[in-house]
Amino acid sequence: PQLPGLPPLVLELLGCDQDELMVQNKIIAHLQQEQGCSRGRHDKSSTFSQMCRMADQTLFSIVEWARSCAFFKELKVGDQMKLLHNCWSELLVLDHIFRQVLHAKEDSILLVTGQEIKLPLILDEVDATLSSLVQKGQNLAMRLHTLQVDRREIACLKFIVLFNPNVKMLENQAFVEGVQEQVNGALLEYTLTTYPQFQEKFSQLLVPLTEVRSLSMQAEDYLCYMNLSGEVPCNNLLIEMLHAKRA
């Protein structure tokens, strides 16, 4: 609904959000199709491999999300690729963290498939590095939950990450910079009018993005290491993105 004082851009960005149930069903269907080859296995390696498959399918939905947005459509494919190469892992981390913010349970994790898994169960199924990453993500999600970040703010934050004017060799750098400025402005206006008792909310929302960047870098390093060890399922978008960025 159109609320007074709600910046139209915030509503437009929120409108780009995909139907969660549709994404969920698509991913479940794909994972069930793939399951044939790994049936019966249940160990640390198969848990990691399942996480990779989920992340891979989530990446497909992230690309679809970006393509659905008017601003993104205005860019040439070359620039679209550069933006996504730069932030795919951040968007994956954000997708996971925002799901936990809305799930709002400290002791369990909501997967993109809609399954809820108790945190200790996951931590027990993965190695120490991944366990630490999952816990850091959970801490960050709980801090964002304390900040009471809402869906409209989440929609804006995703675009601030996607339209990063610091990406090198962009053909239309000025446009990307302009979009980020517009989204920043709309988010600032939104937080000031919707949460007038919380004047610092805008700046408080941007702080965690640095941590998301750092978490996503650590996740990429871990994926690289696991890929070299032959543990990552091959021929997927996840690995293509990893190679494109690291090559």
Partner: peptide
């Protein structure tokens, strides 16, 4: 030099109206 990302290029280039 960055390796070309063929799958991503395909996903961005494909025509959904067809």
């Amino acid at each position: 030099k960055k390796k070309d990302n063929a799958l991503l290029r395909y996903l961005l280039d494909k025509d959904d109206t067809v």
